[in-house]
Write a protein that binds this DNA or RNA. Structure first.
Lengths: 184, 184
DNA sequence: CACAAGTTTCAATAATTATTGAAACTTGTG
DNA sequence: CACAAGTTTCAATAATTATTGAAACTTGTG
């Protein structure tokens, strides 16, 4: 929806980006960053698009703006809903579903920590506990050494768990305050 | 090298895992976990293998124990050296290179944070700064909103940077102490 | 309950990423 | 400096992961 009250670009800003261009760059950047994070590109791009969109978007809008198929758009928006990063926004009198992003970045961080902790850290802890509990032969040479490594890793995982759980529960000001005071 | 002083399995521990089996399970677990972490499976498995090996291993050993090609073994061990997770251990009078893992898990954590921060967080911060600095047209509707989102993300990235840098520098006892006291 | 509007599923396919293995290279030694 | 032992590179290929798009399904409405 280009604003008709501002149709001609300001000549003094010939090299200035339109908002649309800047948003496109942001979407691209967010998508690229996500790759190293184990989150897939489409999901990250869709999140970025919704983050910088003032209005709620429909599946149709997501498809056309990101140039992806209907199936992909549907699956990905569902996943964002699962993560809690995006909400449904039903428009009165409309059949179609619209979506808006959670814009509070601390809240976004919490959602991401919660999901990734659940999928990765918790899963790893379960496997480690299971492995450590298996009966072994303590007289084998190297048995103690192996269990020491295992124990160290478990301890590390527990610390990470405690810290992440704390971050999730913490209040914004308190958190930033404490952490920054601690390390700066 | 199976210990010849302990050739027959203890019958009372018929279901006990041999150390070798337990190690194999750990290697498998570590490899699977890494997948969700953007680290590749072979690298994680090799790291796990070296972590639980009492002696230094050669490229040859890595190849046969992990069932991977020479090329893969060579590339991957180089990458582990780059990350600082593994050291060369030259045996006197031997041409062949041997490798041992850093076994102090806090040190391991530091290496991983350092590398991932460099590749991911620092890269993202650079892109964000660049995007925020681009000239735009402040009269466009939505301009302020867009830059607010950008600013929020930058602030978050800065906080993460500060915290991670702190963790890397911190002493073990101090760190565990502080963090755990803070959140428990 | 038939229809239209919209959504989801999933097998086929495309895109990406990891691995192989043979050839080229390096390095220490007689 | 020729050779042997070992290492690295990289084009070809395999394995994995993401995406498409058409068919099946769902849901609200006259």
């Amino acid at each position: 929806m280009p604003d008709p009250t501002n149709p001609t670009p300001d000549p003094s800003a010939a090299t200035a980006l339109t908002l649309e261009q800047a948003k496109a760059q942001f979407i691209h950047l967010w998508g690229a960053t996500s790759a190293s994070w184990g989150i897939n590109r489409t999901m990250a791009q869709m999140h970025a698009l919704l983050l910088v969109s003032a209005e709620a978007l429909s599946t149709e809008d997501l498809m056309t703006q990101l140039q992806i198929s209907r199936g992909n758009a549907s699956m990905t928006v569902r996943e964002l809903l699962d993560w809690g990063l995006v909400y449904k926004a039903l428009k009165p009198g409309e059949r179609r579903e619209y979506f808006v992003a959670e814009k509070d970045m601390l809240q976004v961080t919490r959602c991401i920590i919660r999901e990734r902790k659940r999928r990765e850290l918790d899963a790893m802890k379960r496997s480690l506990d299971q492995l450590a509990a298996l009966p072994g032969d303590p007289t084998e040479p190297g048995y103690r050494e192996f269990h020491r490594v295992l124990g160290d890793i478990q301890q590390l995982a527990d610390s990470a768990d405690t810290v992440l759980t704390g971050v999730m529960k913490a209040e914004k000001t308190w958190l930033i305050d404490k952490l920054l005071r601690m390390f700066t």
